[in-house]
């Protein structure tokens, strides 16, 4: 059996990639994908812990997170479409009407 630490390291790496993606990427869709990556890293960690502990709680939580991620995707993509209709661009640098 693969030890728990391996899963956690992979989850940590995926989470970090997602976090860096949110900060570095300029396209809103890419940022959104990076956020999904962070959620999936959390799912992986949750399942790994759940297996390690022999408890089902983590599995339940993962289903909840997947549902929430789907709801967020639906709302998020509609907001992105509304934004795109208004300004013909999905570049986060151009969303700059309000600062300071």
């Amino acid at each position: 059996m693969v030890p728990l630490e391996y899963y956690l390291v992979v989850a940590g790496i995926i989470f970090t990639i997602g976090m860096i993606g949110v900060i570095v990427a300029r396209n809103i869709i890419i940022i959104f994908m990076s956020i999904e990556l962070m959620l999936n890293a959390a799912n992986l960690a949750m399942i790994a812990f759940s297996r390690n502990l022999g408890s089902m709680g983590g599995h339940v939580m993962v289903f909840m997170i997947m549902t929430v991620a789907a709801a967020e995707a639906a709302v998020g993509l509609s907001i992105i479409i509304a934004l795109f209709r208004n300004r013909d661009s999905a570049n986060i640098d151009e969303v700059n009407l309000m600062k300071w």
Partner: peptide
């Protein structure tokens, strides 16, 4: 939305560790 979802990522990852 973007920052709220970003924060959700942290919350969930945190919950995973506390649960673990």
């Amino acid at each position: 939305f973007l920052l709220g979802a970003f924060a959700t990522g942290f919350t969930v990852f945190g919950i995973a560790f506390v649960y673990g």
